[in-house]
Design a protein around this nucleic acid. Structure first.
Lengths: 117, 117
DNA sequence: TTAGTATATGAACATATATTCATATACATG
DNA sequence: CATGTATATGAATATATGTTCATATACTAA
């Protein structure tokens, strides 16, 4: 008698049901994109600073010790994913976070990191 | 009179203070790594399935419609980042999530995605 | 030990992505 | 309009990453 992987005994119907519970593929794609934005240390720094203050590009560059160009490129990504909003005052553009979820996601993950050491 | 970027008027001391509030660079790196794990749709699917059930590699492959090898490679990443735990039963290895934070991060992000459409 | 099943892994390849450099755009001031 | 400042962007490059294929390891049963 062959003792097969127990899970293989899950009927096809159940597999289908479990599969159906998965958020649809557009949602999964969007989620992946969303997390990818957080998946870079330089962007995380920008996100963190913006979670605390409304800041212009120049100061973000100074705070994060990145070149202005690099900051602009990354801000474009944050903007496109609607993580930030901006406001113009003369030639200066002030960025801030768009959504409380962003801060929340950051905080939960931080808890996790601190917990697992 | 030159109207400079208002934020430039933030004294160096304040900049230093804001910078100091940023989690240390090891933490930022770990956070980035953590989010990077979520930043791939195939891994997200695995994470989702494992947030619901304890599953073996073969069924994860069937559920996610990935090759066994690809699943194993991705599970290695989840394991290394301690997002999953596993248990062996004969030749079968059952995976499950390691931590409630993972589920929580997933859910908050999902809310965000559903909110911004 | 031999055969079979479940999972893991190394190498190769293709694709994605972050940064830099040079330059463009947008606005303000004189 | 001309100049200066703040920000944005395109191209190029270097690096990271996901998948596949072939194969290795770990365990079980006969």
């Amino acid at each position: 008698m062959n003792k097969q992987c127990a899970c293989k005994s899950i009927p096809e119907d159940d597999l289908k049901r479990i599969k159906d519970e998965l958020p649809d593929s557009d949602t999964i794609e969007s989620l992946g994109e969303f997390f990818k934005v957080f998946g870079d240390p330089t962007r995380l720094k920008l996100i963190y600073f913006l979670s605390q203050y409304e800041l212009c590009v120049a100061d973000l560059a100074r705070l994060s010790e990145m070149e202005q160009s690099a900051v602009s490129h990354q801000l474009k990504i944050l903007r496109l994913h609607r993580l930030t909003k901006q406001r113009r005052d003369g030639t200066t553009i002030y960025y801030s976070l768009n959504d409380n979820h962003v801060r929340e996601v950051f905080d939960v993950a931080l808890e996790h990191i601190e917990e697992i050491g």
